[in-house]
Nucleic acid binder design. Structure first.
Lengths: 123, 123
DNA sequence: TTTATAATTGCAAATCATTTGCAATTATAT
DNA sequence: ATATAATTGCAAATGATTTGCAATTATAAA
């Protein structure tokens, strides 16, 4: 049983084929993927189930999400990383700390920092 | 003629009632507002026109936008500022530099930095 | 190792933010 | 004043995501 499957089980959820496949895809492609993208790799699984499972896995902190240009992307390994997005075509590049030079491919740069957490009320 | 109206005119666009009212609302409320929120203040104006004008004004850099939780908010004064969003209820607080202490109301904090600009291809 | 049951799935339809097409209206240059 | 292109409002489309519900399936207990 994988580490992720263990977490699922410990939280009292079933280890189902869709869940296993979604995790495998995220593991294989290593990059943040949208529900639609995962669906393209797994057309056997209903898109709705993909959405539901991505939400569950996110709640359990088995996977993590980031929202870019009104679409949510999911990834397995939580490491803080940043992006630069083209305002016109939406092209996105990851900016791992050791690739900062990539910012030279862009002009007209602005930025937005979103911190998220749980407010007192929800905690 | 206001500063914003001047920019519109200089860019060759008409100064229309919807545009004036949208700018007035953004000026009055000072905080980033979504199209829907602006529509609540201006029910006389079609929501579609609000969307179209917000896009135009953004393109002309008369107003600026930021995307939080899959919804776009617009504001008049470009000053870089940051937010913290509750992962559960979506409650959002602005974090102007002089109010950093507000972060104490949140736990479980993670962050995401989005830089945007124009890539070489689109420039 | 069956079986009961609650969790999960797939499908259809709903929802929410945003966009598009088009005919009617309006701001502006002449 | 008026011609004309830009803009509006309305209806309908789109794209991401969610919800309801009946059918299926993983799992724990017999």
């Amino acid at each position: 049983m994988t580490n992720q499957e263990l977490k699922l089980k410990q939280a009292g959820f079933k280890i189902t084929t869709p869940r296993q496949l979604i995790l495998e895809v995220l593991k294989k492609y290593k990059t943040p993927l949208s529900a639609k993208q995962i669906y393209q790799y797994l057309p056997q699984i209903d898109l709705v189930s993909i959405y539901r499972n991505l939400k569950l896995l996110t709640n359990l902190k088995i996977i993590f999400q980031e929202i870019i240009n009104n679409e949510t992307f999911y990834y397995l390994d939580k490491k803080i990383h940043h992006h630069i997005v083209c305002q016109r075509c939406g092209r996105t590049e990851c900016l791992p700390c050791n690739h900062k030079y990539k910012i030279k491919n862009f002009t007209n740069i602005s930025h937005q920092l979103i911190l998220s957490g749980l407010c007192n009320h929800c905690h």
